[in-house]
Simulated assay, not measured.
Amino acid sequence: MRQFTAVVNPTAGGSSGTAGLLPLARLLREAGAGLDTVYSRSLEHAREVAREVGAKGHVVLAVGGDGMAGTVGGALSGTDTVFGLVPAGRGNDFARALELPTDAPGLAKVLLHGEPRAVDTIEVESARHTRTCVLGSVYAGVDAVANRHANASRVLRGAASYYAGGLRAVLAWKPATYRITVDGIRHERTGYTVVAANSGFYGFGRKVAPGARVDDGLLDVVVIKHAPKHLFFTLMNELKTGAHVQRPEVEILRGEEIRIEADRPLPYGADGEVDATLPVTLRVRPAALKVLA
């Protein structure tokens, strides 16, 4: 029987991150599994705990949203540790890409009896040459600004915070000129954002990269080019279904190594966390993480 350690974001979803863990914990323990719980004090603390308990042979569970999933899963990238997700945040986009059950009995079944599946991760090298790994996507532009607004919201929660943050970001946006180098080939584009996607989803279930697969060894690079702002709002609505990729203002590139630069300092985010500025270099790490899904 598996031994689990849950690394919990205590404020996931704007409330107690333990809410989604309690019914699941009961089911895991009733089945005979061991379960320890550690509350993270910071993202770096979560990484340290994940590596430490993973080295002991525990299955490491990330309890929270995409930020916690990316932090813990990224820390385990390239190791033999088995990773599990307990989606308890606002977006839960990587869990959505893995088609994880949202009910406690279904998720318990996956965690207790599922076979580990190898998925890709993204190595992120910042301008300061520091390197981390994340799971879902890295995005640079108006969406990073919007996500920063959403994360800072104390009034709105869930999808509402993303819509409000997006509106605020787009209304103030000025077109940026990007230099995007994909496997050594340089592309210059002007527009709203560049998204390097391992997972098809971001921003609370928006299907930004419908063709992206977490195990194909490639990153899908979605470029939303310059367009009138009223059309951009239409594009945002089409992200729900992925229909935006049919528009001429949207371009998709694919590659293993991506470098994103811009004509001004722009924020970029990764798995829901926004704390850095372009340029950034991204590399896919094929089959680097074993996840129960």
Results as ranks from 00 to 15, higher is better:
2 R>Q: 07
3 Q>R: 15
18 T>F: 06
18 T>L: 09
18 T>P: 01
19 A>C: 06
21 L>T: 11
25 A>P: 07
26 R>N: 12
26 R>W: 10
28 L>W: 10
28 L>H: 11
30 E>H: 10
30 E>C: 08
32 G>K: 02
32 G>H: 03
37 T>W: 11
37 T>A: 08
39 Y>F: 15
41 R>W: 01
50 A>V: 01
50 A>F: 02
52 E>R: 05
53 V>Q: 00
54 G>S: 00
56 K>D: 01
60 V>F: 00
66 D>W: 07
72 V>G: 03
75 A>Y: 02
75 A>K: 05
77 S>A: 13
81 T>S: 02
82 V>R: 00
82 V>D: 01
83 F>E: 04
85 L>Q: 03
87 P>G: 02
87 P>M: 00
91 G>M: 04
92 N>V: 05
95 A>V: 05
101 P>W: 02
112 L>C: 02
120 D>H: 03
121 T>N: 03
129 H>Y: 00
133 C>D: 00
137 S>V: 11
137 S>Y: 02
142 V>Y: 08
144 A>T: 03
147 N>V: 06
151 N>D: 01
154 R>K: 05
155 V>G: 00
157 R>H: 04
158 G>E: 00
161 S>Y: 04
162 Y>C: 00
165 G>L: 07
168 R>V: 01
169 A>N: 12
171 L>G: 13
172 A>R: 15
172 A>S: 15
172 A>P: 12
174 K>N: 10
175 P>C: 05
176 A>Q: 06
180 I>D: 03
183 D>G: 06
184 G>Y: 04
185 I>W: 01
188 E>P: 01
189 R>V: 09
194 V>A: 09
201 F>A: 10
202 Y>L: 15
204 F>I: 09
205 G>V: 10
212 A>L: 15
212 A>Y: 13
213 R>A: 15
214 V>W: 11
217 G>M: 14
220 D>M: 07
221 V>Q: 14
223 V>G: 11
225 K>P: 04
228 P>R: 14
229 K>Q: 12
229 K>F: 13
230 H>T: 15
233 F>C: 12
236 M>Y: 13
238 E>M: 14
238 E>T: 15
238 E>R: 15
240 K>C: 11
243 A>L: 11
243 A>S: 13
245 V>Y: 13
252 I>Q: 08
255 G>Y: 08
259 R>K: 06
259 R>T: 15
262 A>D: 04
265 P>H: 08
266 L>S: 12
267 P>C: 13
269 G>Y: 08
277 T>C: 10
281 T>V: 15
283 R>E: 10
290 K>R: 13
290 K>L: 08
293 A>M: 06
